[in-house]
């Protein structure tokens, strides 16, 4: 965003703020800081899927700033045991401090649970470009989960040759979030981000 556009955006936001709060320098600073905080965190890469940003992955929630050096960012963990969570929190903390925030709070949000449906379209495209088959729609969460004695059917494409003919090697891949497939057309193995 150019400085001019940024200024215009800040003025618009300031008008909105003044409308709501009666206007103050701090509210204006808070709005600008909030945007800066979002810009700082949205481009942080996921440590295990570094082709994706945390925004692409859909783990970032609300971003707040108080206009006085404080920032609060909500993060939704993917799997309960995702070992990358510590690194994600450390990376977010570092990015916010590098952007000038002196008080940083990272809030864990457990509900509603993260779902692969939160991965952005851009994220899905990047996954495929990097050889990971993107997830299909997440299963319904209401009611008892049906047992599946045969591999669940997934509409997926080999990220290398594009064939839609692949066989499941394992529902558990190199990380908890991925299943292993083998393309029956080009015979290459590939990973599929599984739906949760």
């Amino acid at each position: 965003m150019s400085a001019g556009a940024e200024g215009a955006a800040a003025r618009t936001r300031h008008r909105d703020e003044r409308h709501r709060t009666g206007g103050s320098g701090r509210a204006e600073r808070a709005a600008a800081d909030r945007r800066r905080a979002w810009e700082a965190v949205e481009s942080v890469a996921d440590p295990e899927l570094p082709m994706l940003t945390l925004a692409d992955l859909g783990v970032l929630g609300e971003v707040e700033a108080d206009g006085d050096g404080g920032a609060v960012v909500s993060v939704t963990p993917t799997y309960s045991g995702c070992p990358a969570m510590g690194a994600i929190r450390a990376d977010l903390d570092r990015a916010l401090r590098a952007a000038g925030f002196t008080r940083v709070e990272l809030r864990t949000v457990l509900h509603p649970p993260w779902s692969t449906d939160r991965i952005t379209e851009r994220g899905r495209r990047l996954l495929a470009e990097h050889g990971v088959s993107p997830p299909g729609p997440a299963p319904e969460r209401d009611g008892p989960v049906p047992l599946s004695l045969v591999p669940r059917r997934r509409a997926l494409h080999c990220p290398r040759c594009g064939s839609d003919s692949a066989e499941l090697t394992s529902e558990f891949g190199s990380t908890a979030c991925k299943a292993l497939y083998r393309c029956t057309a080009c015979a290459e193995p590939f990973e599929h981000m599984k739906e949760i």
Partner: peptide, 24 residues
């Protein structure tokens, strides 16, 4: 307990995969 409810909500999707794995 909202915390327990949220922890369970996350766990359901995970354990569903464990159950399918063991059953197969």
């Amino acid at each position: 307990d909202p915390v327990l409810a949220a922890v369970a909500g996350k766990g359901v999707a995970e354990v569903a995969y464990h159950r399918d794995y063991a059953a197969r």
